[in-house]
């Protein structure tokens, strides 16, 4: 089958969940010229306890506009994890921040679960807590290889506010590093 991915990023408002979707869409859509569709929670929903941003990446034109069986889930808080795990594809991958999410092993049977303390990494290794989303993006892309690292770096740079380029690249690198021990079993 031709390449087709469904990503779901989730967490709470302010964690940069929407921006993750935008950066990934930009990397896949404008740098690698794959087809992308991004949908997201909107307005009050996006400000609440569990917001999501979903990205479909495909070599073929994307017909149906919504993520129906995500291959990948990122959950950056408990509520998001509890709410958005249900329709994950068999053998799908879950990346969680173990400092923020407790996983019941029964619920994740048949999934690949990668715990990465992205918030702590952003704070301690990168030195800028708001880059946790970029660390997570590095983890997701390292694990999946959905876009090249170069494309992702370029998209991160384009989205980074002036003066934060180096910090954001470091965050991305920390994400790739943290994911280097993980192998996809699918």
């Amino acid at each position: 089958m031709r390449e087709y991915y469904e990503f779901r990023f989730s967490g709470s408002g302010g964690q940069g969940i929407m921006l993750m979707g935008q950066i990934l869409s930009e990397a896949a859509g404008a740098y690698e010229m794959k087809n992308v569709v991004q949908t997201r929670s909107y307005g009050p929903e996006a400000r609440g306890g569990a917001c999501r941003s979903e990205v479909i990446i495909s070599q073929d034109p994307i017909d149906y506009l919504e993520v129906s069986k995500p291959n990948f889930l990122l959950a950056l808080n408990q509520e998001a994890f509890d709410k958005y795990l249900w329709d994950l594809q068999e053998n799908g991958t879950v990346v969680i921040d173990p400092d923020l999410v407790t996983v019941d092993p029964e619920r994740v049977k048949g999934f690949n679960v990668f715990p990465v303390p992205v918030t702590a990494i952003a704070k301690n290794q990168v030195g800028m807590p708001v880059t946790a989303n970029v660390v997570a993006l590095g983890v997701m892309c390292s694990v999946t290889g959905v876009v090249s690292r170069k494309a992702l770096e370029s998209a991160v740079l384009a989205a980074a506010p002036n003066g934060t380029e180096k910090t954001n690249l470091k965050a991305l690198a920390e994400g790739y590093k943290a994911a280097s021990g993980f192998n996809l079993d699918q």
């Binding site: 979707g21 896949a28 949908t39 909107y42 994307i62």
Partner: peptide, 9 residues
């Protein structure tokens, strides 16, 4: 609302 809010390249 779907067409208006979704992103596509």
């Amino acid at each position: 609302a779907v067409i208006g809010h979704m992103s596509e390249n």
